[in-house]
Structure formats: structure tokens, C-alpha cells
Amino acid sequence: MSESQLTQAFVTALGISAEQVTDELTYNEIDAWDSTAHMILIAELEDTFDIMLDTDDIIDMSSVAKAKQILHKYQVNPE
């Protein structure tokens, strides 16, 4: 479990470069992170970390920083 796994999940799901995956990156801020990409991102995170996110967390996952916080709740610590 590492931050690089989290970054890779964003890279794969959103089709962006690793350099773009910063804590400040937010949902809808870039065209690549729209609702369809969000769905792919959720699937990618669930596969990568072997978790099942609930709806509130899917809705709350509005930035990379927020994703880290939420994953922490699932005992996933991308540090």
C-alpha cells in the first residue's frame, strides 16, 4: 500500500499524468474528472485497495486529498 498506488489509480481512471495528481485536484475541475471518470475511479480504487466504498463516500470523494481521508477510514493509508 503506497501513495503511488493511489496516484496510479487516478492516472488509470482519469487518463491524466501522475504530475496532475495532487491533493488539490478536485472533481469537475478538469474535463477528465467528470461523472463517468468518477465511476471508473471508484472501481479502480476498489480494485486496487480491495474495498467497497459506500455512496456517501463516493459523493464525498471530491478531491485527491478527500480520497486519502476516505481511504483512511477503510484502513487504507496511502502515505
Binding site: S35, T36, H38, M39, I42, L53, D54, T55, I58, I59
Partner: peptide, 9 residues
């Protein structure tokens, strides 16, 4: 896809 995301338990 949106409905699937927003319909989870």
C-alpha cells in the same frame, strides 16, 4: 453509470 453510483446502499 450515474444511477449505479448513486444507488448503492
Amino acid at each position: 453509470p450515474l444511477k449505479q453510483l448513486l444507488s448503492r446502499q
